[in-house]
Simulated assay, not measured.
Amino acid sequence: MRTPFIKMHGLGNDFVVLDAREMPLPALSAQMASAIADRHTGIGCDQLIVLEPSEAHAFTMRIYNSDGGEVEACGNATRAVALLHGEAATIETAGGVVLALEPSEGGATVDMGKPRFEWDAIPLDYAMDTCAMPVGWGELENPAAVNVGNPHVIFFVENADAVDLAAIGPEIEHDALFPARVNVNVASLVGPDHLKLHVWERGAGLTRACGTGACATAVAAIRRGLVGNRVTVTLPGGDLIIEWRERESIRMTGPAAESFRGEFNWDDFA
């Protein structure tokens, strides 16, 4: 079975998109998703995205990290599929419904929904203040936690570039405090309403950009009074603009692009 795919990226956070909205695909296992994502023996990507029909919305977006695990949300992928869809749309995900507002040739603005801060919505293993958690791992202390469709923990430091996130990220991701594991964000304030961010993604590791990480970090910084309601977040792959006011949903604006299209033999990865 020859299966078409679309390779896309948002700020270098790259995806293989399988469009099953009109032609269903066979069942996709975690092992197959991981094999497709493998950069040496597969097509290669940070996330595999599967688009499927939805009864209530324009379509459903399923998201698989490069380890094969299915996750709830991906901000960069949302912008990418909004660009692919070509018009405003509501998109069903495992983390809730997101709204593509303004797809354009160079990217999109998407409404990522309302953040959640309750300890059991992150989720955490036990109750604590999620604005300034009384916990730490080495030099990283007193993080914030935000759920933006998937769980994030955010550390504000003097210099985000100086943190060895590749070393500490896996330890925090798998800590028993986070029963669903967690995405790990390290950010520093580099100017008025301007943050620099590095992200260790749950199930994917270090990536050039993480849209939900940028959303979670901006929201945490706004809650702490570090920035205003419109924030530029600079990731290794480039900039995202995040806007949020208390009790409202998060809006994210940034680029997305199609890289190339191709086909693969489904049985090669099954």
Rank of each mutant, 00 (worst) to 15 (best):
Arg251Cys: 11
Gly191Met: 04
Leu140Thr: 04
Leu140Ile: 06
Trp137Thr: 00
Ala187Thr: 02
Pro4Thr: 01
Ala162Pro: 04
Glu70Ala: 14
Val199Glu: 05
Phe117Ser: 10
Glu141Gly: 05
Ala256Tyr: 07
His198Thr: 08
Pro4Gly: 03
Thr212Arg: 06
Asn142Pro: 00
Ala27Val: 09
Asn185Tyr: 02
Val110Asn: 05
Arg208Thr: 12
Asp38Arg: 07
Thr130Gly: 03
Trp137Asp: 02
Glu139Ile: 02
Asn142Arg: 13
Ala166Gly: 15
Pro26Glu: 13
Glu139Lys: 03
Val71Pro: 00
Ala218Tyr: 07
Asp267Ile: 09
His194Ile: 02
Asp120Lys: 05
Leu84Tyr: 14
Ser29Leu: 09
Phe5Ser: 03
Ser54Gly: 13
His198Met: 10
His9Thr: 06
Asp268Cys: 11
Thr232Pro: 01
Glu173Thr: 08
Val231Thr: 12
Leu51Ile: 09
Ser54His: 13
Pro53Thr: 06
Leu25Tyr: 14
Val16Tyr: 12
Gly44Met: 04
Ile172Trp: 06
Asn150Gly: 01
Thr93Asp: 00
His174Phe: 12
Asn76Lys: 05
Ile6Val: 14
Cys210Gly: 05
Cys210Leu: 06
Leu11Ser: 08
Thr90Cys: 14
Arg261Pro: 09
Asp125Gly: 15
Ala37Ser: 12
His9Ala: 09
Ile222Cys: 07
Ile168Cys: 11
Gly10Asn: 01
Arg181Lys: 14
Gly205Asp: 07
Cys131Met: 14
Phe156Ser: 00
Met133Arg: 09
Ser66Glu: 08
Phe117Arg: 11
Arg208Asp: 11
Asp120Arg: 06
Gly203Glu: 00
Arg208Ala: 12
Arg230Gln: 14
Pro24Ala: 05
Thr212Tyr: 09
Glu102Lys: 15
Arg62Gln: 09
Arg181Met: 07
Pro143Glu: 04
Thr90Ser: 15
Val233Cys: 02
Pro26Met: 13
Gly262Lys: 04
